[in-house]
């Protein structure tokens, strides 16, 4: 983990309420896709944890949905500096991917799949991607994934674009060696039930510090208590103990 100041290079809307921010600064503490950063904002006491979408040398890209005061404030920024803690969380473990991993992202769970996808391609994996949204107007990052040259399946719940249905519907007809997923908890549960291989899930929880000190985001797993911010946010399929 590192604390450093990042310059905002770009901040633009991708949909009605989803924004992409490109930052420049010391990214050396970021060691794996699936990690997150924790951003300090003026006038708000707690930092805002946001997943890493892309990384190119000293350029960090994050994608966030405007849901409250913090993300509203972020959406209004065009330049300036941000105090950011980087290199938080465990991130995805690429060593288990096998030859044909599938990446399953839903809504704001899509961004961390991007850097993961790039890293798996670097390892010469045959990557398939499923991106799930509610409706056509909420789709983002589809072209960016296609530009990486991977097989992309988009699903929308209302059928306004791509395959009608859920990510798990697209998964039915697929052969894969392993899976990686991030998205809302109902989707994660559905993926848990419908996948036939092992895989990794990224979880979201309300955090205090984001670096393991406050125990605000703990969860129970089959292998013991874990802090989502420290031993997570990525858990192995085999260790997940759903709360209900």
């Amino acid at each position: 983990m590192k604390q450093s100041v990042f310059q905002i290079l770009e901040n633009k809307p991708l949909t009605d309420c989803v924004y992409q921010m490109v930052l420049q600064g010391d990214t050396s503490a970021i060691t794996a896709p699936g990690q997150f950063v924790n951003i300090r904002l003026d006038g708000l006491y707690l930092r805002r944890p946001i997943s890493v979408c892309d990384l190119q040398q000293d350029r960090l890209t994050i994608i966030y949905k405007v849901v409250g005061k913090g993300t509203q404030q972020m959406a209004s920024m065009t330049d300036g500096e941000l105090d950011i803690l980087t290199g938080l969380g465990n991130g995805y473990d690429l060593t288990k991917a096998g030859d044909d991993p599938v990446l399953i992202g839903g809504g704001v769970g899509v961004p961390p799949m991007y850097l993961l996808c790039k890293k798996l391609i670097e390892q010469k994996k045959h990557v398939q991607v499923i991106l799930g949204f509610n409706t056509a107007s909420e789709i983002f990052l589809e072209q960016a994934f296609r530009d990486l040259g991977v097989d992309v399946t988009v699903t929308t719940v209302d059928g306004s674009a791509g395959t009608k249905g859920f990510v798990t519907d697209a998964l039915q007809n697929m052969n894969y060696s392993y899976f990686y997923t991030c998205g809302p908890e109902p989707m994660l549960k559905a993926v848990y039930r419908s996948t036939t291989t092992s895989g990794q899930f990224s979880f979201e929880k309300r955090m205090g510090c984001g670096f393991g000190a406050c125990m605000g985001c703990s969860c129970k797993t089959i292998t013991g208590f874990k802090r989502i911010c420290k031993e997570g946010p990525v858990l192995q399929k085999e260790e997940i103990a759903w709360e209900d």
Binding site: Y45, G208, C214, G216, C217, S218, F225
Partner: peptide
């Protein structure tokens, strides 16, 4: 960290709420 005789998981989550110039926690002695 507050230590007890036996191990404790503490309270259910969410355990954290933001406030003006502060936060509320209900970790529950994990």
């Amino acid at each position: 960290k507050g230590t007890t005789k036996d191990p404790r998981f503490g309270n259910p989550t969410p355990r954290i709420a933001e406030c003006t110039a502060g936060l509320i926690n209900a970790v529950g002695l994990q």
